[in-house]
Amino acid sequence: MEWLNAVVQGTLLGGLYALFAAGLSLIFGIMRLVNIAHGDLIVLGAYLGLVVTTSTGLHPLLALAFVVPAMALIGYALQRGLLNQTLGDDLLPPLLVTFGLSVILQNGLLEVFTADPQKISAGALETASISAGGLSLGILPVLTFAIAIAVIWGLQWTFYHTALGRAFRAVSDNQDIAQLMGLNRRHIFGLAMALALGVTAIAGVLLGIRTSFDPSIGSGRLIFGFEAVIIGGLGNLWGTLVGGVILGVAQTIGAKFDPGWQILAGHVAFLVILAIRPNGLFPRVSA
C-alpha cells in the first residue's frame, strides 16, 4: 500500500512537472528556441502570485486572473524586444542570451525578495484531502493534475483548431513562406511566448502553493521540465504529461528508499530512458 501510495503521489506530482514542461515544449516546437531562463520564469510567476495574494488578499487561484495575463505580457515583450533578435541558424545566441537572462532574473528576484524562502498561502486548499481506496489524496495535487490535463488539452485544441494554432504550425514549418501568407513571424513568436509564459504562470503559482520557494530554485525546475519533455518525446504535449508522471513517480519511489535519493532517482530515470529510447517514448518531431 505504501508503494501504491508513492506511485499515486508521484503521478500527481508529474502533473506539476508537465506544467513546467508545457511552455518549454511549446516554444521549442514553434521556434526551435530552448529557453534556459524558463525555470526562473516559473519562479517569477510564483513571486507574482505571492505579490498579488498578499497585496489583495485574493485566493491564489483567483490571483491567476492577474498573474497569467501579466506573465503573458512579459512573454510577448521579452520575445519582441529581445529573443527575436537571437533567432537564426546559429545555436549560440539564443542559448547564451537566455542563460544571461536567467542570471539577471535570478539575481533580480534576490535583490527584490531576498533569499528567504516564501510560500503562497492558499488556506484550506493546502491541507485538504480526500481518501479513496485507502489512499489519502491531497486536493491540491489532484487539482494540479487536473489543471495540467486541462492546460495540455487546451494547448492541443489551440494548436489544431484555431487560426492562431494554424499560424503557429505554419511558422514552425516554414518561416519564409508563412511570411508570404501575411503572417508576421515576430508577432507570431511573441504570441507563442505569451502563451508559453501564461502556462508558466499557472505552473509557478501552483508550485508556490505546494512548496516554499526562493530565487535560486529556477534551474531545478528547468531541468525537471526539460526531462519531462525529453522523456515524453519532443513536440508531443501528451507525451510530455507522461514524461512528467514518469519523473514524478521515479522521484517519489526514490524518496521511499532514502529521502536524499528523491531528485537523483528522477535524473537516473531520465538518463535510463535517454539510453534506451533516445527520442523519448512518443517522439513526433526530430530535434
Partner: peptide
C-alpha cells in the same frame, strides 16, 4: 547581486 545582473546584461548585449 547587482554585479551579477550587470554581468548577465553585458553578456546579452555583447552576444547581440
Amino acid at each position: 547581486t547587482i554585479y551579477l545582473m550587470v554581468l548577465g546584461l553585458v553578456a546579452i548585449v555583447m552576444m547581440l
